[in-house]
Structure formats: structure tokens, C-alpha cells
């Protein structure tokens, strides 16, 4: 075990994957010699050479298209998009190519080995072009997996699973936790299962679901609720597509209440999918409407960032409202 922050855990996962399999290649804007603008790919070029870790020209559509080609040839590309906000030029390559390569060729060709990493989310005074949480655009795309870790241990284990997954994975990293989240991380290789949620804390009155950086927020709200005698079950979804309906449904069947928290705008956010599925599965167990504490339906603000955030206070108030419904 070693103490690592989330960035170091990502870096460690990449190094582990590159050591284990020479087909793993890491590339993107500024990821080579410099090690990425956040330093997630530090020293990888030094260790593995310029053919395996390199800078690309500044073109996201090029990066993902190139990665699609490499993946279909049998390599394991790990492509970095510098900020999730800049993934949109690559949208066509992801939605129409990465996701459909296997389906359209009847399984002859595929991009299953591809992993796309991108820092996402707010809390860094980044305004609307350095703070977006675009996960739900991708959860609408059959054929790709969407994975988001909440801390260093999850980052390493989930990223290694993503790289070794036979399906393409979009791996969003909560950048406001890059240096803030620190924890024990095994130095050896390990994988955490994709598609599986983790129950962080058991409770009886309400289930709280979040992913990535917002997990810390619902934990804080659960602590506040505990002081008021409300027992929260806290779930980190970890994988958004496919997601762990069973774990969430089992929890809600027990608690009778559900609150979903995400930073992305509420409308058509992934919370809507969870709410719809849970009311289908747990209708007779529900004691209150499913609550969503999310970003506003506006672009991500700058001066009003703190007001926009679905923070612990908003979450706590919603917990109380749910329990008193």
C-alpha cells in the first residue's frame, strides 16, 4: 500500500497497464514529455518511450478517430481528452464509430480495447468550458461503458478494468479531487468490477446515490442527517453504463426513499434514468417521490459556481424533505 492522490493513482494505473501489456498506448494533447496538463501521464514517456506515450496534434476528433483505428487493429489505446468540455469535437467518432464498430460489422471489427480518459466537473473556478459533467450524453449511447471513480483506490482499480475491458470505456475523472482526494492504494495490479455500485454506508431511512466528486457531498449530507437521527444508505454508482440497478433497487426496497445527486443539469441527467428505473422496480416500496439534487438547467456558471453546485446543504434539505414527506 502507498498513499496516493487521485492523479497519482491514475498515473500508477497507466504505468501498471503499460508494464503488463505492450499493446497499451497512452496519448493525447500534452501527455508526452510534459505528462499532461494535470500531470496524470507524468514520466510515462520516459519509462516507455515515445512510441507508446506521445503528444498528439491538437484535435480531439483526430485523437479518438486514431484511437478507434488502433483499437480495431488490436492495440489498447488510452486516449486523453484534456478536459471533458472538449470532448465534443470527438462526439461523432465516439457515438458513431467507437460505439457501433462491433455492432455494424457483426462482431468482425470492434473498438473494445479503447479507453478515453477525461477530467470532468466543477469546483475549480473553471466556468462553463472547464467544469462540465457531460456523462449523460454518453450514457445515451449503446455500445460504450461510462465509468467515474470517486477516489484514488477506485481510480486505479476501475481504470485498470477499463483498459482491460472488452468494451470501449469513457472514464471521467473528477478533477476537483485530483489532488484533494488522498488514500491508500495497493502498489500491485488490481481491478474493480465494472457495472457494479458500492454501498459505502448502510442505512435504513433513505438511499443516497451519486458518483465521482459528488460522493463526498452525499457522505457529508449523510453525516448531517445522522445528527438528526436520519439513517442514510450511501451508494457510489461507479459505473453509469451499464449501471448496477440491482444494488440500488435492493437498497431502495429496504429504505423506501431515494435521492440522486449529480453535478450535471437536472434535465435529462443520468438521475432521470435512475429515477425512472427505480420507480418501475420499487414502486410499492417507495414512501416518497424520488428526489434529485442536481445542477441547474443552465450552463455552468463562474461567479455563481457555489450557488449552482448541488452541495451538502441542498442535499441535506432534500433528505429531510424526503423523510418528512
Amino acid at each position: 500500500m502507498a498513499k496516493m492522490n487521485l492523479l497519482q493513482a491514475v498515473n500508477h494505473a497507466l504505468q501498471t497497464a503499460m508494464e503488463a501489456d505492450e499493446k497499451v498506448l497512452v496519448f493525447g494533447e500534452d501527455v508526452g514529455h510534459f505528462g499532461g496538463v494535470f500531470r496524470a501521464t507524468s514520466h510515462l514517456q520516459e519509462k516507455f518511450g515515445k512510441t507508446r506515450c506521445f503528444n498528439t496534434p491538437l484535435t480531439e476528433q483526430g485523437i479518438v478517430g486514431f484511437a478507434n483505428g488502433l483499437a480495431s487493429q488490436g492495440h489498447k489505446p488510452v486516449a486523453e481528452i484534456q478536459f471533458a468540455d472538449y470532448i465534443y469535437p470527438a462526439f461523432d467518432q465516439i457515438v458513431n464509430e467507437t460505439a457501433k464498430a462491433r455492432y455494424r460489422s457483426g462482431g468482425q471489427f470492434e473498438c473494445g480495447n479503447l479507453t478515453i480518459r477525461a477530467p470532468y466537473g466543477g469546483g475549480i473556478a473553471g466556468g462553463h468550458y472547464h467544469s462540465q459533467s457531460p456523462e449523460s450524453f454518453f450514457t445515451h449511447v449503446p455500445g460504450i461503458r461510462v465509468v467515474i471513480p470517486r477516489g484514488p483506490y477506485q481510480a486505479k482499480g476501475l481504470l485498470l478494468s477499463a483498459i482491460n475491458s472488452p468494451d470501449p470505456v469513457i472514464f471521467f475523472e473528477p478533477k476537483r479531487l485530483y489532488r484533494a482526494a488522498v488514500g491508500e492504494v495497493p502498489e500491485e495490479s488490481y481491478q474493480l468490477p465494472l457495472g457494479i455500485a458500492e454501498v459505502l454506508r448502510e442505512g435504513t431511512d433513505i438511499s443516497l446515490v451519486a458518483w465521482g466528486a459528488q460522493v463526498e457531498v452525499i457522505v457529508k449530507a449523510a453525516d448531517m442527517a445522522a445528527e438528526k437521527g436520519i439513517s442514510c444508505e450511501v451508494i457510489d454508482l461507479q459505473s453509469l453504463l451499464p449501471w448496477d440497478l440491482e444494488t440500488v433497487a435492493t437498497s431502495v426496497t429496504k429504505t423506501g426513499r431515494l435521492l440522486i445527486n449529480h453535478e450535471a443539469p437536472v434535465t435529462s441527467g443520468f438521475g432521470a434514468e435512475i429515477a425512472a428505473s427505480i420507480q418501475q422496480e420499487c414502486f410499492l416500496s417507495l414512501e416518497a417521490p424520488i428526489s434529485r439534487v442536481c445542477g441547474l438547467d443552465t450552463p455552468f456558471p463562474l461567479a455563481h459556481e457555489k450557488l449552482y453546485m448541488p452541495d451538502h446543504l441542498k442535499t441535506f434539505d432534500a433528505i429531510v424533505a424526503c423523510v418528512n414527506y
Binding site: G126, Y129, H130, P301
Partner: peptide
């Protein structure tokens, strides 16, 4: 721009200077 963009993302209609957008 009502404080909505990061520093240096200027824009001024009167001066015919289109408001800057970070996506390159």
C-alpha cells in the same frame, strides 16, 4: 458577460469584438 466566463474571455459588442469561447 455578467461574470460568467473565466478571466480573459472578453467580449464587447460595441467594439465589434466577439466574446471569446474557450473551445479552440
Amino acid at each position: 458577460n455578467k461574470g460568467r466566463q473565466m478571466p480573459i474571455h472578453y467580449g464587447d459588442k460595441a467594439l465589434n469584438f466577439m466574446t471569446i469561447s474557450s473551445p479552440l
